[in-house]
Amino acid sequence: MQQVFKLPDCIKKDAKFTFCPGCDHGVALRLLGDAIDECGVREDTIAALCVGCSVFLYDFYDIDCLECPHGRATAEATGIKRARPDKFVFTYQGDGDFAAIGFAESIYTATRGEKVTSICINNTTYGMTGGQMGPTTLLGQVTTTTPFGRSAELNGYPMKIAEHIALCDGTAFSARVSLDSVANIIKAKQAIKKACEVQIKGLGFGFVEILSSCPTNWKMTPQEAHRHIREKMIPVFPLGVFKDVTKG
């Protein structure tokens, strides 16, 4: 009898996630924990966290964490990495934090090629504050601030974050993955590990955008939310690796 699955060591043994039932944040945190464990950098890791549901990482991870002002996680990660280049520094942010409030910080961190890793959870809404329209909200999606659905004329189009980051010369790895099925979860794990490895090798900015569900604010069951990712989100936000400097 062989153990084929265990929880990551960097997640506290008594951790109980406080996310809503069916929220994919839990899966993303577990995959990130696995990647940190597999890279063997747990003792040298510092996390820069944002404002939003993703900030709860500090309750569950047994690592050093810094809570940053809204959207400024990548700027603070830059400071930490420049002061302590021997440390492994990552940010874990939502789409509103990374691509709206903190887009200037995020895009310039990628442009400068800072050797940090960023994970962005894209659930097409501001989850913690009650489901307002975010930068990635789909056209036609009903939120509390777009009660008639997002309109291109009035609100513009959803932002494709991974493609934007891939255009920056300092980016070493940029990918978009999804957590809607077991096959996609396995691919997500590989992408997150790769984004960590490019930092450890000193190649540049590592970025992964994760399509994730928010059943509470979407007003769906967890199963319906995963179907929504497959049928509505993936056609707009195609999955894949958009930049990988390790592959020619």
Partner: peptide, 20 residues
């Protein structure tokens, strides 16, 4: 089968170990 599909999907760490 010990395929881990349930453990990979669980968002709340409720499936803590899988043996095969």
């Amino acid at each position: 089968l010990g395929c881990k599909c349930c453990a990979l999907t669980c968002p709340d760490l409720a499936i803590t170990e899988v043996y095969k």
